[in-house]
């Protein structure tokens, strides 16, 4: 018996469940990009990293029969892309935005190229905690089925915020991000910091991909990502380079994305395309409402090319 008829209560429940299920990739990519951008570099290519992470994670999970090894492989693959990006952008006169776009193409190309044999097989899924076990409602149980990576993401967001605020490492990254010259004056090697920050950012994007292919929706195919990586990069600007805000942005984005299907399931079925656009409209509205005046965003890292 699949339980009670909950009617309209399904909508808030779906938004809650959707926020938890759908937000994790946005969270990881935006945290990774937040780290990278705080060091003064932009990596627009995380969509490619995410897709390659999804493929490599799925492939390794299938071959080794261990979802966690898949996540590890995705993280390693992602960090490779990140380090590559960081290494190229270290060279003078190279445009980091353009390299990012080329790497996005490259990552997707490689993922599709090597991913063909893994579309059919079924790889093991990542485990989830049943936080809804107290409820007798299956809907509540489903909504509160929380994947471990989501929790890791929350911890990571808090840790990253603390790192930026209170640790020497965080301060180093921020100094590098705000001014290459003052970093040099302080004896910091800005290129090295950016290289490592970009590598770590790539690793997080790889994990985001593994979440897509190994948990939700939980399979590898060429349409697995519908632009989550690109959108998450944009969410970092929305979140004002603050890891905690990245978490809220990802949650809002995931929850708003669940609105469309949930409304249809209770019979609000006209104009569903417009409901599906809700996350984008909502983000844009918030962005316009919270921005003011013109010029630099106060919280933006000073040497970031995209905010000039």
């Amino acid at each position: 018996m699949t339980g009670a008829d909950i009617g309209w209560w399904g909508v808030p429940l779906a938004i809650l469940g959707g926020a938890i299920r759908v937000s994790t990739p946005f969270l990881f990519v935006s945290l990774g990009e937040c780290l990278t951008e705080r060091s003064g570099r932009i990596n627009l290519g995380l969509e490619g990293t995410l897709v390659f992470g999804a493929m490599s994670g799925y492939a390794v999970a299938y071959e080794t029969n261990s979802a966690w090894l898949g996540v590890l492989a995705a993280a390693i693959a992602g960090s490779m892309f990140g380090l590559f990006h960081g290494w190229i952008c270290k060279l003078p006169r190279v445009n980091d935005i353009a390299i990012g776009i080329a790497l996005m193409l490259f990552g997707m190309g490689l993922a599709f190229f090597f991913g063909k044999p893994y579309i059919q097989p079924v790889a093991p899924d990542l485990p989830a905690f049943e936080f809804g076990a107290w409820s007798s409602l299956p809907q509540m149980q489903a909504a509160l089925k929380v994947n471990v990576l989501f929790l890791v993401g929350i911890v990571l967001a808090i840790a990253m915020a603390w790192m930026f605020r209170a640790t020497r490492l965080g301060l180093t990254i921020r100094v590098v991000g705000d001014s290459t010259d003052s970093a040099r004056a302080l004896g910091i090697n800005p290129d090295l910091v950016r290289l490592l920050a970009t590598g770590a950012g790539g690793a997080l994007a790889g994990v985001a991909g593994a979440y897509l292919s190994l948990y939700y929706p939980g399979s590898w195919n060429e349409g697995i990502s519908s632009g989550q990586g690109l959108m998450a990069v944009a969410l970092v600007i929305f979140a004002r380079w603050n890891p905690i805000n990245c978490f809220w942005a990802a949650l809002m984005f995931g929850g708003a994305g669940a609105l469309g299907p949930a409304l249809q399931s209770v019979g609000v079925s006209q104009g569903y395309y417009l409901f599906y656009a809700a996350p984008y409209v909502l983000t844009l509205v918030v962005l316009v409402a919270t921005s003011s005046g013109r010029g630099l965003l106060a919280s933006a890292p000073g040497s970031l090319s995209i905010t000039k």
């Binding site: 632009g227 690109l230 959108m231 944009a234 969410l235 600007i237 929305f238 395309y273 417009l274 599906y276 656009a277 984008y280 409209v281 983000t283 844009l284 962005l287 316009v288 921005s291 003011s292 005046g293 013109r294 010029g295 965003l297 995209i306 905010t307």
Partner: peptide, 20 residues
């Protein structure tokens, strides 16, 4: 007029345009 970053707004507008 509002200092909204054009990269993110243009991407959001693209998704909205396709839905429209």
């Amino acid at each position: 007029y509002r200092g909204v970053n054009e990269t993110i707004s243009s991407l959001l507008m693209a998704y909205i345009a396709i839905a429209l």
